[in-house]
């Protein structure tokens, strides 16, 4: 039990690069999701995934550099994500009422 909590040993076991690689992979999966899917809800979910990978990166660096400011920034990122999701889903409902679809390819009036 004590091994789990002892942070200094844990930092020695897992190098910082592995956290960074995990965050890079999650962020790239999010980018892939935004480009790949047509469903607007999945696009929103991919954006959430990207925000989360950045949160994990900020927490990792704040722990490895002994600075609590990084975790305060993560708090603000969560707040902005919550507000963004509220507004975005309201817009999505509005779009669905107008064009009866959540396909982003249906929104092509500005294309030509």
């Amino acid at each position: 039990m004590n091994e789990l909590i002892n942070l200094k040993d844990q930092l020695r076991i897992i190098p910082l690069e592995h956290y960074v690689f995990l965050c890079i992979i999650l962020f790239s999966i999010g980018v892939m999701g935004v480009l790949l899917r047509r469903n607007m809800i999945i696009v929103f979910l991919s954006i959430e995934l990207m925000l989360n990978s950045i949160n994990l990166l900020a927490v990792t660096f704040s722990v490895y550099h002994n600075d609590a400011s990084g975790q305060a920034f993560v708090f603000f990122v969560m707040v902005v994500a919550a507000a963004e999701v509220a507004v975005g889903l309201a817009m999505l409902v509005l779009i669905f009422r107008n064009i009866k679809s959540v396909d982003i390819n249906a929104l092509n009036h500005l294309k030509w």
Binding site: R12, V63, N66
Partner: peptide, 25 residues
Amino acid sequence: FGQHPEIVDQNIGLAKTLGKVLFNE
């Protein structure tokens, strides 16, 4: 960022520390 820190602050992520940072800085 390859090297590890010498001293690790154990209670940096606790609500007490983070609350102080959040309400001061």
